[in-house]
Amino acid sequence: MSVQELEKIFLDKIEQEIKIEPKDWMPDAYRKTLVRQISQHAHSEIVGMLPEGNWISRAPSLKRKAILLAKVQDEAGHGLYLYSATETLGTTREQTIVDLHSGKAKYSSIFNYPTLTWADIGAIGWLVDGAAILNQVMLCRTSYGPYARAMVRICKEESFHQRQGFDILMALSKGTPEQRDMCQDAINRWWWPSLMMFGPHDSESTNSEQSTKWKIKRMSNDELRQKFVDMIAEQVKVLNMTLPDPNLKWNEQTSHYDFGEINWAEFWNVVKGNGPCNKQRLDARRKAWDEGAWVREAASVYAAKRKAREEKKEEKQIA
């Protein structure tokens, strides 16, 4: 079959909402886009373990400690599903990790901000996971089968994460004046970076158009961002807290909240590596990987030894 014919079959499937599966023919650019996006997503899960992991040892109660530990462990699990989804496209986990460590592959910039107080753990759950969910719910319908299926599992856990974040802030909002200050301060610091998670404006987003055609993406950055603002602007009232945006206002005509302009200079700087924790996060990942090298090697050498011994045993039995 000619490439043109194969491409037609591929596009017909996309048109008819039939999932693309690993063994199906697909354009190189589609494969590349997916590898970039899914591995970036996987790395975000793994790097995202670090800012929250910071607070496991200091969680203020045993119950909170157990919940946070389980939550961060979930993120590791999400990383695993997503690395597996990347592997179905012919790129190994090791290769994608090498790309992360070299700086070639990106991860979500939100994790380059520091977690300074316990309230940050609540704000991450509520705002960061809240923003991630909107994106991920959309991805449950993405055109590539393994990615869509991984997303369905991930979404179930993420909604629990968002609730636990909100629950942390709820407890703070009902607490002492210091706890309420801590809560408001965390919201103030995480609000704008959360809005940045949806990426540049549609007019500036280089990858979006093709991704939409291929139904990898099904809603635009600005649409998702608006949805997020509308949701959070209501939820923040339950906490008796405010969002740090003087321009945030309900608009009767559009039936949406209007909101202020993101600081795009900050956005691009953090993407380029100049965020407060970019270096620290990558250093931590590289260190874990490098210090784990002898462990991975020992495991694979032992597995090979064991296999050889078993084969020998079988040979003897046959003889």
Partner: peptide
């Protein structure tokens, strides 16, 4: 729990 996020393999 100090290992969480820093283990030798996922």
């Amino acid at each position: 729990s100090e290992w969480c996020g820093h283990g030798p393999v996922l």
